[in-house]
């Protein structure tokens, strides 16, 4: 009986990808390319560039899947963070000419692009994420505009804490505090919404 890759979990697919099963990679592509492409495009803002970056992301998944820790069973977070890091890096290189001088090497990619997930991270897959997307949206809405804005600047605009501070003309310590409060409140809102 032929194996139906579409029925496999994210974790199982990733295991097969690590075993160099290209059909598992194709299944991961079919499953994740819409959300990864949407995320990359939101960060980069250009359709064609987003497609190119999406290709780069899947190449990384194929080539450097050994960095994925099977124990975490959190393919979703690993892929989202990977795509986000890749897009933000491209955006920063465009925005900051001095970054272009920093060569994009394998070492650089391993260090700054490949996600480092906590070994104690909970399991999460795309089905679960999609099932709670309304809760996430509601939890985000409950934040103040300022809290939403610093999250937006940090996550989608690719600004660092010091860049956010410069942009908002506020001390960097304030930015750190706002990010901490925003994420903590978001978590609390999400937990409350799920109850």
């Amino acid at each position: 009986m032929a194996l139906n890759y579409n029925e496999l979990s994210d974790a199982d697919l990733m295991k097969k990808v690590k075993a160099s099963d290209s059909r598992a990679l194709e299944a991961l592509y079919n499953r994740y390319s819409p959300i990864l492409f949407t995320l990359i495009k939101k960060i980069i803002g250009d359709h064609q560039a987003a497609e190119e970056l999406l290709i780069e992301v899947y190449v990384i998944i194929w080539r450097k899947n050994h960095y994925y820790d099977e124990r975490s069973s959190n393919v979703y977070c690993w892929l989202i963070t990977l795509a986000r890091n890749k897009a933000v890096d491209a955006l920063r290189r465009k925005r900051d000419p001095s970054m272009v001088k920093e060569e994009y090497t394998d070492e650089y990619e391993d260090y700054f692009i490949i996600p480092r997930l906590s070994p104690e991270i909970d399991e999460l897959d795309i089905q679960t994420a999609q099932s709670i997307q309304k809760n996430i949206e509601e939890a985000l809405h409950k934040l103040t505009d300022a809290q939403q804005y610093v999250i937006y600047l940090g996550f989608y605009e690719g600004l660092t804490q010091s860049e956010i501070a410069a942009k908002l003309k506020i001390p960097i310590q304030t930015v750190k505090s706002k990010i901490k409060i925003a994420l903590t409140n978001l978590k609390d809102n999400l937990l409350k919404g799920g109850e």
């Binding site: 959300i35 949407t38 995320l39 939101k42 959190n74 979703y76 977070c77 989202i80 963070t81 986000r84 996600p115 997930l117 906590s118 070994p119 104690e120 991270i121 909970d122 999460l124 994420a129 999609q130 709670i132 997307q133 309304k134 996430i136 949206e137 985000l140 999250i151 996550f155 994420l183 978001l186 978590k187 999400l190």
Partner: peptide
């Protein structure tokens, strides 16, 4: 750390 990493990765889920 794991909780907040998951939380951040959920941000694009409602796009």
């Amino acid at each position: 750390l794991g909780e907040f990493q998951n939380l951040s990765s959920l941000l694009p889920s409602f796009l």
